[in-house]
Computed example of a mutant assay.
Amino acid sequence: MRALSPLRLLLLSLFAVLLSGCGYNQIQQKDESVKAGWSEVLNQYQRRADLIPNLVNTVKGYAAHEQQVLTDVTEARAKVGQINVNADDAASLQQFQQAQGELSSALSRLMVVTENYPNLKADQSFLGLQTQLEGTENRITVARGRYIQTVQDYNTYIRSFPQNLIAMMFGYQQKPNFTVENERQIQQAPAVDFGQPAAPSATPQPPQPSPQPAN
């Protein structure tokens, strides 16, 4: 193999310095941060999905006739598992977050139903699953929030001069993010706290008879 001439080596060295100075290395670092953040989001969603079969089976043991709610959770989980999400594709990410939102809603309805079964709420297996689900929902919220910030940082960086020139040269494009309309879901996990039962509604009092006038 023929050795590179001193002039070519010099040109390559200058080119490398220019790339580094224009943000090429930083683009790589930020791109890897986005990938790591997305992996953590998927990891936490998968953690929740793994809890659901045991949760459904435990609830079914006490509330088998709540079939519609149990079916909704199972079907929503199955739908999530069928999505092959690509975080770099806006339509794919939208489909993914919609399916995850439907699963969150189904889980919330399931948790409301369990309020009607004191024996279920005292079951140790259910209590353990409840604690794990609470922790997982919080982790999902944190992971999504960090991912949003990481993508925003990456997108802002590659749009700024002179990094935008390097990004165009090497084909780096803006990445899609979780949509604005989902911000409330991102900030507030589904309620899974059974510590405070709903206050009973006040029982209406029968009307009192009017006093009769004295004769």
Rank of each mutant, 00 (worst) to 15 (best):
P6K: 09
R8M: 11
L9M: 10
L18S: 11
L19M: 12
G21P: 01
Y24D: 10
Y24H: 11
Q28E: 12
K30V: 07
W38A: 03
S39I: 02
Q44W: 12
Q46E: 15
A49D: 12
L51V: 07
L51K: 12
P53C: 04
P53E: 09
V59F: 10
E66G: 11
Q67C: 00
Q68A: 14
L70W: 06
V73E: 09
E75G: 00
A76T: 03
R77N: 09
A78M: 05
A78E: 04
K79Y: 01
V80Y: 04
A90G: 02
Q95H: 01
A99M: 00
A99E: 00
Q100E: 08
G101K: 00
E102I: 00
E102Y: 04
S104R: 04
S104M: 01
S105A: 07
A106S: 13
M111R: 07
M111I: 01
N116F: 10
N116V: 02
P118G: 02
N119E: 13
D123K: 01
Q124L: 08
S125L: 06
F126P: 02
L127Y: 03
Q130I: 01
T131W: 10
T131G: 15
Q132E: 14
E134Y: 05
E134Q: 14
G135I: 05
T136P: 01
N138G: 10
I140G: 05
I140R: 02
T141Q: 14
T141P: 00
Q152L: 02
Y154R: 12
T156W: 12
Y157D: 10
R159D: 13
S160V: 01
F161V: 03
Q163G: 03
N164K: 15
L165C: 09
I166Q: 10
M168G: 15
M168T: 15
Q173E: 14
K175I: 08
K175E: 09
P190N: 06
V192Y: 03
V192M: 13
V192R: 02
V192D: 06
D193G: 10
Q196C: 06
Q196G: 05
P197R: 01
A199P: 03
P200C: 06
S201V: 11
S201K: 15
T203Q: 15
P206C: 06
P207K: 03
P209K: 01
S210H: 02
Q212T: 11
P213A: 12
N215Y: 03
N215G: 15
